[in-house]
Structure formats: structure tokens, C-alpha cells
């Protein structure tokens, strides 16, 4: 019964992607909201990475959390989920690069991942987590084509409209 098995795998993949979308959306909405509450703390955390010019930090301290919230909301919308997942992958990869350069340069810096929480330091496990989530985002944005998926490519993906 190869066709049935293929359908089951494809359906499972769709549901897993939906689950991953909702999970990533919750993470981005939470992280973005916390950062928006205290932009000065975020600006200080970003500055501590010693990666960006000081003139750019205040702009990004507003822009980044807004982009996170927009990405989180769009991940829940079927019409923009793949674009949001691509943005998610890009952001998470950049976060991983920023953290890795800080570790390599010996800068022990507060992560700033979820607002100005000075007790959460950058670590290699955080770099790995960001890379893993970036790969998950790529999987959502560009799902692998299974034989069954090719035949049902026109079928709309399950949507997750916010209630």
C-alpha cells in the first residue's frame, strides 16, 4: 500500500510543520513583546555584543522586536507563513552568528534573547539552539517534496488563524 503510506507521511509532515509554526510563532511573539517593553535594556545588550555601530543600535533596538512580533503573527497566517519562516531562519542564523562571534572573541555577554535578563549569558548551547531552530524554520519555508506531496502540491496547507 505505498500510496496510502505516502499520504500518511505527507499528512504527518503537514501537521508537524503546523506544530512547528505555532511553536516558533509563540517564541517570537514572547521574545518580541519582552524586548518591546524595555528597549533601553535591549539597546544596552545589543551594544555589549560589540558588533554594531553605536548609531545603529537604538534603531535596531526598536526594529528587531517589531520584526519578531510581525514574524510571529505571520507564522500563524497561512498566506504568509513561508515568508515568515524564511525571515525566522534568517534572524535565528544571525543571532547564532552574533553569539558565536562574542564567544570566540571572549566577550561574556548577557544574551538579551528574551528581554533584558542579565542572568542569561551567551553560551555555545544557545548558539546550537538558534541554529537548530533556523533549520526548523527552513524546513517550514521550503518543505521537502515527498512523492505524495508532488501529487498533492495543489492542496492547501492546514491554516492556523489566530483566534
Amino acid at each position: 500500500m505505498p500510496p496510502l503510506r505516502g499520504d500518511a507521511v505527507s499528512a504527518a509532515g503537514r501537521w508537524l510543520r503546523l506544530l512547528a509554526r505555532v511553536g516558533l510563532a509563540a517564541m517570537f511573539l514572547y521574545a518580541g513583546a519582552l524586548k518591546l517593553v524595555e528597549p533601553a535594556g535591549l539597546a544596552q545588550d545589543m551594544s555589549n555584543y560589540r558588533l554594531l555601530p553605536d548609531g545603529l543600535v537604538p534603531v535596531l533596538a526598536i526594529g528587531l522586536p517589531v520584526l519578531e512580533v510581525v514574524t510571529g503573527l505571520a507564522l500563524l497566517l497561512a498566506s504568509h507563513a513561508r515568508g515568515a519562516a524564511a525571515l525566522s531562519a534568517l534572524m535565528l542564523a544571525l543571532f547564532a552568528v552574533a553569539m558565536a562571534q562574542a564567544k570566540l572573541r571572549g566577550i561574556d555577554v548577557a544574551c538579551g534573547c528574551f528581554g533584558a535578563d542579565a542572568t542569561t549569558q551567551v553560551s555555545w548551547s544557545k548558539v546550537a539552539l538558534n541554529l537548530a531552530l533556523a533549520i526548523l524554520s527552513i524546513w517550514i519555508a521550503w518543505p521537502p517534496r515527498t512523492p505524495s506531496a508532488r501529487t498533492t502540491a495543489a492542496a492547501p496547507p492546514p491554516s492556523a488563524q489566530p483566534s
Binding site: 528597549p39 539597546a43 551594544s47 526598536i62 520584526l67 510581525v70 513561508r82 525571515l87
Partner: peptide, 25 residues
């Protein structure tokens, strides 16, 4: 999709920055 989301974020961030002001270092 990416361009649309970035445009929305840029507009919201610009409004927010204008209303609340940019954080200072």
C-alpha cells in the same frame, strides 16, 4: 512575502520610534 513582512515591520517600527523615541545608550 518577506518583502511585505519587512515593510510592515518597518512602518510599525518607524511609528513606534516616533511615538516613544529611540532608546539611548
Amino acid at each position: 512575502q518577506v518583502l511585505r513582512l519587512c515593510a510592515v515591520a518597518a512602518v510599525v517600527a518607524a511609528v513606534l520610534g516616533w511615538v516613544r523615541g529611540l532608546p539611548t545608550l
